[in-house]
């Protein structure tokens, strides 16, 4: 079973996205903050990481750190960024990492389809 890590400080997103991916046949772990996600990445293995870019911290973009670390460990093609605050600089930062950006709000079915596509 493919393993997916969802990183988002919004409990509703973690819950809803997690359930959708579990129903689609994935094993899902969730984390709500940067250090928790990084600890998981350092000690567990995942096939795909979905991370929000704002994780409730002051800088507003600690998710980018998670994105970079996940891309470094797993390859940029196995990482997806999510944000409700997309702008040109965010998009270019995600592109620099080599990842893709999902703009919130998005349909859960679209996200599941994208995960399936990535993990084929």
């Amino acid at each position: 079973m493919k393993r997916i890590l969802i990183v988002d400080d919004d409990g509703l997103i973690r819950e809803a996205l997690g359930q959708a991916l579990i129903l689609a046949g994935f094993e899902v772990t969730t984390a709500e903050e940067r250090e928790e996600a990084e600890a998981l990445l350092a000690t567990q293995s995942y096939d795909l990481v979905l991370t929000d870019l704002r994780l409730g911290d002051l800088s507003g973009y600690s998710g980018l750190e998670v994105l970079s670390e996940a891309a470094y460990r797993m390859g940029a093609k196995r990482v997806l960024a999510m944000t409700g605050y997309a702008n040109a600089s965010v998009e270019s930062a995600v592109q620099e990492v080599g990842s893709e950006l999902l703009k919130k709000p998005f349909a859960l079915s679209r996200c599941v389809a994208l995960c399936n596509e990535k993990l084929q």
Partner: peptide
């Protein structure tokens, strides 16, 4: 929680 695993717990503690 994810921290039930001792590896994750200690890694989290080190990172924070």
């Amino acid at each position: 929680t994810n921290l039930f695993s001792p590896q994750v717990l200690f890694e989290y503690a080190r990172r924070r």
